[in-house]
Amino acid sequence: MALPPQLKAIQHYLRTAQEHEKRDPVVAYYCRLYAMQTGMKLDSKTPECRKFLVKLMDQLETMKKDLSDNESITQEVVGNAHLENYALKMFLYADNEDRAGQFHKNMVKSFYTSSLLLDVISVFGELSEENIQHRKYARWKATYIHNCLKNGETPQ
């Protein structure tokens, strides 16, 4: 289903969910939950947005049923830890590549995805100062290295 333009801001979270469908359904679930919450704040009044959000809600309810025996879904604290570990692992992979001077598309994506997942963690409550800093750094690094690679420059 096409994403209405009013909900453009949630497209990256929905894409991350799709990419994790098989690899890590818990990550996919919370990305969609975050997208749902954000989407409702953006626009849940116009018919096209309502239709889209109802469909997303149907998907979330089905996922929740399918994952009902998974503690990361049934217990908030476990889910929070799962997402945090995953985001950190992704951040560390990209950071290690960065420090080793290995610049490539995959590390840019890892930096960017870790920043998106740190946004997603806010479904559990306010982000810690450490997570806010990691998110800021990861987003900045992703943009900077992406631009360097695009312009054929070597990141410093």
């Binding site: 939950l33 959000l53 109802v54 879904i73």
Partner: peptide, 27 residues
């Protein structure tokens, strides 16, 4: 949008909010 249209829209919105909080409740 007339008043009927407005009430239908807000009822649907409420339903979505309720489904979201049910989803969150069980987390």
């Amino acid at each position: 949008m007339g008043s009927v249209g407005t009430s239908v829209a807000s009822a649907e919105q409420d339903e979505l909010s309720q489904r979201l909080s049910r989803l969150r409740d069980q987390i």
